[in-house]
Simulated assay, not measured.
Amino acid sequence: MIKNHLVTIFIVMITTSFYAQQKQVGLGVVGLSHGHVGWILGREDFGDVALVGIVETDLELAKRLAKEYNFSMDLVFETIDEMVAAKNPEAIAAFGNIYEHLAVVEFCAPKGIHVMVEKPLAVSLDHAKKMEELARKHKIHLLTNYETSWYPSNVRAKEILTNGTIGELRKVIVRDGHRGPKNIGVNKEFLEWLTDPVLNGGGAIMDFGCYGANLLTWLHKGKKPNSVTAVTQQLQAENNPRVDDDATIILTYDESMAILQPSWNWPMGRKDMELYGTLGAVYADDRNQFRLRMAEGYDGFKEETFNLEERRSPFDDPFALFAAVILGELRLEPYDPYSLENNIISMEILDAAVQSAKKGETIYVK
């Protein structure tokens, strides 16, 4: 018993020593109005990221969240200049509206501060290109966080496509969305800019169309579509008077096509993807449930269902991944969903979709 007790103490000492020596990335948060900000405010301390400062001009919002997540108002600054001067963060996570992403990068890039924004990268292709130029000029990491990047089901789908199990890819269908921001009860600060065509760049077409654009660019290893055709509707004018709330986007590639269905009109929240090949299909039904269906005869098939385990760190958490990239412990694969090169192409797709919906015509991608 004494021996076992000593072994336990030894293990605890080694573990404690490891975390004490582990390099932490000092992270600043700019903006608190994004509904996803709880991911960092309520995150456990894993020893990889230290929240050093917050920028928020709405002090009532900051106080409300400070009470909810138990952080000190001493961390809160009214300007990014003040926070960076006082706290010297190595990285910034942007949790304000999408229009502000460009301003965050304009401030951070010349100072060598790495940036991660919530999806999508920007409100427009013009903003995205300016951000790309700054990131490359000043050699900072500029990542975009998509929840679907963490999904084991999406990773398995790409593995099966790559190894040829379902044959050559012919069609992709991606469906994302929920009942709408107001209907699901997002906070008022989030709702104000989500339904603003300037601050969000559009409605559902931007908010959820970006997921499909991002996944398609990843699946196609950076290959752009030949054409983009989009139709939008406003089915909840009382809730979303200034933006679309339903969209269908059709993309053509040389040997396949894709259909994206971003919507604020689904009866339930969803983020799912279907890949159809010449031999079979895969269904990433949600984060963990995955189905493989192989064709048999005319309309027969054999289907297997898998409940997948979560991915291993740092691929199960955006901040762990951000820290690993900054510290040089991880190098993203080409056109990874988080990567800048992926998200520039994703913005080209979204830009073409918005143009197509406005003009009522197909946009051919250069």
Results as ranks from 00 to 15, higher is better:
Leu327His: 12
Pro318Arg: 08
Arg311Asn: 14
Lys271His: 13
Ala247Arg: 05
Phe290Ile: 03
Arg293Gln: 15
Asn265Trp: 06
Arg242Pro: 03
Ala284Ser: 15
Pro334Asp: 12
Gly297Ser: 02
Asn240Gly: 07
Asp316Met: 04
Asn239Lys: 12
Ala284Ile: 11
Pro267Met: 00
Glu255Phe: 11
Asp299Cys: 07
Ala295Trp: 09
Ala323Val: 12
Leu308Asn: 10
Asp286Cys: 04
Phe306Trp: 00
Leu321Glu: 11
Ser313Arg: 12
Ile249Arg: 00
Asp244Glu: 03
Arg331Lys: 15
Tyr276His: 14
Gln289Phe: 08
Asn239Trp: 07
Thr248Asp: 07
Met257Ser: 13
Glu238Val: 12
Met257Gly: 13
Asp336His: 15
Leu332Lys: 01
Glu304Gly: 00
Leu275Asn: 02
Pro241Ser: 10
Met257Arg: 05
Arg293Asp: 14
Pro262Ser: 06
Leu332Met: 08
Ile326Tyr: 03
Ala258Gln: 02
Ala247Val: 10
Ile250Thr: 14
Leu332Asn: 00
Gln261Phe: 12
Glu274Lys: 11
Leu332Cys: 02
Ser313Tyr: 06
Thr248Tyr: 04
Arg270Gln: 13
Arg312Thr: 14
Met273Tyr: 12
Ala320Cys: 09
Phe301Asn: 14
Asp246Gly: 11
Gly300Ala: 05
Asp246Asn: 14
Trp264Cys: 02
Val325Gly: 00
Leu330Trp: 06
Pro318Met: 08
Gly277Ser: 04
Ser313Leu: 10
Gly269Tyr: 01
Trp266Ile: 08
Asp246Tyr: 10
Thr252Gly: 12
Pro262His: 04
Met268Pro: 01
Glu333Cys: 04
Gly300Gln: 06
Asn240Arg: 06
Ser263Met: 11
Lys271Ile: 01
Asp285Met: 11
Leu279Thr: 09
Asp254Gly: 05
